[in-house]
Design a protein around this nucleic acid. Structure first.
Lengths: 191, 191
DNA sequence: CAAAAAAATTGAACTTGTTCAACTGTCAAA
DNA sequence: TTTGACAGTTGAACAAGTTCAATTTTTTTG
């Protein structure tokens, strides 16, 4: 069952009773997406937070220069959110697209706020999650500053081999912040 | 009084009673640092979280190539933390140095944990803070990918003129992820 | 299966940013 | 007041990464 993954994920972060776990999960609804389908598109308001139970997503923004800038990939056991748009109900800068047939558990804003209010442990859960997220964003920025594109590429495919194997080189290049032509040259130079 | 700033900062993020606010503040102790003094050095364990009430700090890491990579600057009303080292009591990768005579309010790990346990609103406070932090780290990464060094430089000095005015060009270059020589050339090209 | 679309490769010219080394300016300590 | 030490500037050679255009390979779809 797809909720088992969410339950395990929550239990890995905070201690809570079986009934509390049920309450939390009851606020989520499952949704399936076909390959290439969008869960969110730039310009619209993000009305959910999502937990991936199957498949994989790409979260990216199209900048003024026309480049697809990938913020992150979300495979099974990852969260999909545009915090800013979700909290303030403002237009999102992000696109969330399924890279393959996928399933997500979604919670809407009202239910999320209700959950925060009824179960303080949920505040703790997300405090811990955001805290972890912050650390990895900081590390990624430092890597971007002190590693070359080649070093970043090999770091990525070694750290996330499962995700990397599902991606085209164009998508990886968008995550690393380089052109796909240059990524092709990096790969060639290694052979 | 230096606690007023912290109180205001907290009130801007969550609603809580005067007595709760007092309890939170009572867990913090004030510390003064002279210009150039270090609050934390790379390799040691971060035993505090700090809130800056006066002056300004630079948070940086020295990478293998010998570059000082600045993660962020913390002026009045900002937090100083190495979340990872503080939570897991592992060696820190970060240095925190006062750029001028400064004051911080510090909380140690035991008191922080006690505070989380005794006042659920503190979980909410930090959940919201980390959430905001995450958004700005994401934006910074996107800026790094789609802006040139020149664009990033002008974005920085326009967004944080007060902080920028306290910094040497070397420190700004370390934040932007470029060499200070190149920053010098950027500035010249604009005149 | 065939046709079309998208992804990947390659080369050449170009831009952005680095490195190194020499020089200049500034300011705080002895 | 001099003397460092450090911040900033400049130029030249170089390395990293982009852009554009042409070609091949792979994947998708009718």
């Amino acid at each position: 069952m797809s909720f088992d993954l969410l339950k395990q994920h929550i239990k890995n972060n905070v201690k809570l009773s079986t009934s509390e776990l049920e309450i939390v999960c009851n606020h989520f609804k499952s949704r399936s997406l076909k390959k290439k389908e969008f869960l969110l598109t730039q310009g619209s308001i993000c009305r959910f937070e999502g937990f991936v139970t199957e498949g994989c997503f790409r979260v990216f923004t199209l900048d003024k220069k026309g480049n697809e800038n990938t913020l992150y990939f979300a495979a099974k056991d990852w969260w999909l959110m545009d915090i800013d748009s979700f909290m303030h109900q403002t237009a999102s800068d992000l696109n969330m697209q399924a890279l393959e047939d996928s399933k997500v558990l979604l919670i809407n804003r009202q239910d999320k706020i209700a959950l925060y209010e009824s179960l303080p442990i949920v505040e703790k859960l997300f405090r811990i999650m955001f805290q972890k997220g912050l650390v990895s964003w900081q590390r990624r920025l430092v890597r971007n500053h002190c590693f070359t594109a080649k070093e970043r590429y090999f770091h990525f495919i070694q750290t996330y081999p499962d995700i990397a194997s599902k991606l085209t080189d164009k998508q990886i290049a968008g995550y690393l912040g380089i052109s796909h032509e240059f990524l092709s040259k990096i790969k060639k130079s290694q052979k």
